[in-house]
Design a protein around this nucleic acid. Sequence first.
DNA 1: TATTGTTATACTCTATAACTATA
DNA 2: TATAGTTATAGAGTATAACAATA
Lengths: 156, 156
Amino acid sequence: MSSDVASEAAQAPEPPAELNDRLGYLLKHAQQRLVELTADALGPYGITGRELGVLLVLDGLGPTSQQDVARRMGVDRTTMVALIDALEAKSVVVRRPYEEDRRRNVVEFTERGHELFVQARKASDEAERRFVSPLEGTAAELFRAQLRAIIRATSE
Amino acid sequence: MSSDVASEAAQAPEPPAELNDRLGYLLKHAQQRLVELTADALGPYGITGRELGVLLVLDGLGPTSQQDVARRMGVDRTTMVALIDALEAKSVVVRRPYEEDRRRNVVEFTERGHELFVQARKASDEAERRFVSPLEGTAAELFRAQLRAIIRATSE
DNA sequence: TATTGTTATACTCTATAACTATA
DNA sequence: TATAGTTATAGAGTATAACAATA
């Protein structure tokens, strides 16, 4: 029962028995692991997981306003400003003035940005596959379905 | 398929199709829901979910040093200072000087604090049960097991 | 009046660096 | 030298309030 090695750092010294059946602990740490895996996978593409989220929404909706993207992701519109700023600074997306309603920007991919997105999405998909690979067979899809059911049921 | 009411705020306007099969999105939002349920459940007891985590470790280990608790929870010892400060301000725990090694504090429950902990844990347990109630039958325990398997396998 | 984008600001969570006192 | 607790500080991530331009 004693650990043979003391692990690298204070990262994951041992699963603490007192917390190991608490959903609060498990969910938080599982999420943290996925954040790390995703960050590693996206590193070469110079974007973060949250930025990939923006790009996924943009890819799904086509060119749209910042607020559309923000609503879709469930973040505040003020948060979206910095997110788009960062993506624009990397020339992944551009803001265009929208002539039909001049309060809005239209946000859209650059040509190079869309290519980067396609590759980054593949890398992120692969990271997610690795994340659920400890689950056997169809359990990976079940796991997604369970998360969806929980989110839906707890969103009233 | 259209929503009859526009929900309260920009909380969960509609599950966005572009993100609804991404583990990154699902895991983050599921965790957020549990955080909210737990916060509601613990509200009457005046403690947060993270503070309950401290108390769970303290209950498991008995009176220990701050660093023991921090290591156990996987947080930095500097983070633990404020956590213990808050619990001590509420008279849930006390710091005692440890005579055998005077660099350390011993952190332990107050009598009233332990009673509060027992009740708060029950409330949190109930919130976790509600969280996984959308899953049928033994799926709730399976869900925990899946999270444990993922955390274990991605911790090398 | 309401909406889009923006800035300034603040709050939470968390870590790193450096200090004190002990060992 | 190393460890326990502490403080100061800083960096994510995110939200609220207020403003300008536009509808």
